[in-house]
């Protein structure tokens, strides 16, 4: 008889894997992908394909240089980073900037910190912040849907001209904006899928959106407009929920989401930029280690929260 395998308990494992979680996010982004191609046409598709492919390519190259095994989870996560990065830029972006942005996301924001699981900042958002600082004009030049003319986003119109877009347009998404952020309905369908499949925890998006509502009330803003505008829905359900860069504890997730909502509204109403989702999440990413440490919650059989 052959030798028996001896391994530590437990001897059964759940079928869930990292790449399955990534795959679920991909599936959830399909409606928004379709919407973006409908509204922004081949321009959008070129940006998306360029960014996804170059992200995966950089991932593979860097893993080779670092002499690490290339796993399914690495490929799927870098492809997802590419897709999310493409989703938060204008369809007007030239392809070569997107390749550079992919490099920033994968090489600088992710692998400089140790690769999958170790990055502090959301790679897609870090790269977006980089290109926004480097090409501010390109990054704020938007194409109107179905046309090759430039237009302004609802948040810009509000900030610069005091014009508020109508709710239905914003809900459907046929207005100027980043490739994947405009269609609220398409993103919400995907978000529902993520919640139902338990790919994401409801706490981060819930506290994010609740805080935006509360801040809108306090600051005298139009609540529905604030919820539908800009990258809020994309950010709350797909970016802030990135497991690597969000807290692991439940109390931590509540505070993280609330912090994102708070900063978003401060930037939107008082800041120099019309939109604050990207920076709010990046700022809160930096606080995650502290949240994990101080908001651990209570250990079973203890009266107080565990503080290390």
């Amino acid at each position: 008889m052959s030798k028996l395998i001896v391994t530590p308990a437990p001897h059964i494992k759940d079928s869930d894997t990292v790449s399955k979680q990534m795959r679920n996010v991909f599936i959830a982004l399909i409606p928004a992908l379709i919407a973006s191609v409908i509204f922004f046409g081949t321009n959008a598709l070129v940006v998306i394909i360029t960014t996804v492919l170059s992200s995966v390519l950089f991932e593979v190259i860097i893993l080779k240089i670092r002499k690490k095994a290339i796993k399914k989870s690495d490929i799927s996560s870098s492809a997802l980073t590419g897709l999310l990065l493409a989703f938060c830029v204008s369809s007007f972006m030239p392809w070569w900037i997107m390749i550079l942005a992919s490099f920033i996301a994968i090489a600088v924001a992710k692998h400089a910190f140790g690769g999958l699981g170790f990055n502090i900042f959301n790679p897609a958002l870090a790269a977006r912040a980089f290109i926004l600082a480097s090409w501010p004009v390109l990054m704020t030049t938007w194409l109107a849907p179905y046309a090759a003319i430039t237009s302004a986003t609802p948040l810009e119109l509000l900030k610069e001209n005091g014009i508020s877009a109508d709710y239905l347009t914003m809900f459907i998404g046929n207005h100027a904006g980043s490739i994947g952020e405009t269609s609220a309905i398409a993103l919400l369908i995907g978000a529902l899928y993520l919640l139902v499949t338990r790919t994401i925890d409801f706490r981060v998006p819930a506290s994010y959106l609740i805080t935006v509502v509360a801040m809108s009330l306090v600051m005298g803003q139009d609540i529905v407009f604030q919820l539908l505008a800009g990258g809020l829905i994309l950010g709350a359900f797909f970016m802030a929920t990135d497991p690597v860069t969000s807290p692991v504890t439940k109390p931590g997730r509540w505070v993280f989401g609330a912090g994102c909502g708070f900063i978003t509204m401060i930037i939107r109403v008082w800041g120099g930029y019309p939109e604050g989702v990207c920076y709010s999440i990046l700022i809160m990413n930096a606080v995650v280690p502290l949240l994990d440490r101080y908001l651990q919650g209570r250990i079973f059989g203890c009266k107080r929260w565990n503080v290390v």
Partner: peptide, 28 residues
């Protein structure tokens, strides 16, 4: 049934924290 998958690096999904019956943080 005896196959044991190779461990990969933690992506901090927090599932272990969610389910720990002693409310610990197994990942850390």
């Amino acid at each position: 049934e005896a196959k044991v998958p190779d461990p990969e690096s933690c992506v901090r999904c927090g599932k272990c924290v969610d389910i720990c019956p002693q409310y610990l943080m197994p990942n850390f």
